[in-house]
Simulated scan of single mutants.
Amino acid sequence: MTTTATVPVPPATDPTFTPPSLGRRFGALIIDWVLCLLISNFFGGPAQHPWAPVLVLILEYAFFLGLFAQTPGMYVTKIRCLAWSDGGRIGLVRALLRGVLLALVVPALLMDGHRRGLHDRLTGAVIADAPRPARAGS
């Protein structure tokens, strides 16, 4: 049996690209933020160190987006962060920069027609659907 791998079309050149809803993006952010609050409690909590959850969020984004193209919240809401130009991962450096820009909040509110916030455009990223592979026997 021969299988033919199809190469995904990069979002920048895909005329049918439709970004996920803002609700799914916001849901992913809420899940990630709750995780960051829980993790930052190991450092004394937000009351003692108000920047701890923000720092954890930036590091979470750098690690998970850079290596896996999804944060835990994105996994749950079935979205992922890809490179706009080629559809691949954005890598650790761009993921770190994206996390810093996202922490500033305002860049995320300035979106284009593909729902790419300023933080996405500056890092060459886009949020896209993350289809799950079919399970064996399904």
Rank of each mutant, 00 (worst) to 15 (best):
L118M: 13
P46E: 15
Q48R: 14
L118I: 08
E60N: 14
G44K: 07
L82K: 04
A12T: 00
P53H: 09
W51V: 15
D86I: 07
D120P: 02
G137E: 15
V93F: 11
R89H: 10
S85V: 05
T6C: 08
L109D: 09
L29Q: 11
D14A: 03
K78L: 12
K78T: 13
P133T: 11
A52L: 09
G45M: 06
H49C: 08
G124I: 04
T18W: 02
A128H: 03
F17P: 00
R98M: 04
G88A: 13
R24C: 05
L109W: 14
R98I: 01
L57A: 15
P15T: 05
A134S: 13
F68S: 10
L122G: 05
R115D: 08
Y75G: 11
T2K: 09
T71G: 06
V126I: 08
L101E: 06
L109I: 10
G124P: 03
W84Q: 01
G23W: 13
A128V: 03
G44S: 10
I31V: 14
G88M: 06
E60S: 15
G88N: 13
L109A: 14
W33M: 03
G88W: 07
T2H: 12
D120I: 02
C81P: 05
P20C: 04
N41Y: 10
R121D: 04
F68H: 12
W33N: 05
T18R: 09
S21G: 15
P11Y: 01
A95M: 08
P11R: 00
P50R: 12
G87P: 07
I30G: 00
E60H: 11
L92S: 01
F64G: 02
V105Q: 12
L65C: 09
W84M: 03
I31R: 01
L82V: 13
R89Y: 10
G73Y: 08
L35E: 00
